[in-house]
Amino acid sequence: MPTRRDFLKLGSVGVAGLVAAPPAAPGAADAAETPRYPLLTIAPLKDIGAGAAISFAYPDRHSPAMLLRLTAPAVGGVGPNQEIVAYSTLCTHKGCPVAFKPERKMLICPCHWSTFDPAKAGTLVIGQASQHLPQIELRVDNGLVQAVGVAGLIYGRHTNIV
């Protein structure tokens, strides 16, 4: 199944020749080693029903996150139909908690109204964040949905593993 990183690699839509895929930001690489993320079991796959929205914390207890079972395949999704995704719920604008609106199929921040698309890797739909919502990388192991990493810096941190 496609992972978020595959998506990044494949994702240079259009703008051919205009957007060169940039190398990883060297300063950041110099600053800190790639963090080693913990393994966290969120829930058994069988317990994650249609429309589920499960709050959890990852990569530590100060980092609220949410697992969503959407209705269609999602970028970076796991599960039988790649429809299970998870995100940090701290808005990447100013850190307010985003809420999932199932009828809208989007995550909305109540502070300055940035909105994010959980089916498209947490991309900013509209609003004032300068990063997409960090996506929690998931895997299914022995029937358990587990968090294994985070793509994107979580609000309020200079590195995801503080």
Binding site: R4, R5, F7, L8, L10, G11, S12, V13, A21, P22, P23, A24, A25, A28, A31, A32, T34, P35, V75, A121, G122, T123, Q131, H132, P134, Q135, V150, A151, G152, L153, I154, H158, T159, N160
Partner: peptide
């Protein structure tokens, strides 16, 4: 797609 720049997890 999310750009690589924003998938960096530290500054």
């Amino acid at each position: 797609p999310v750009s690589r720049a924003s998938s960096v997890d530290s500054v």
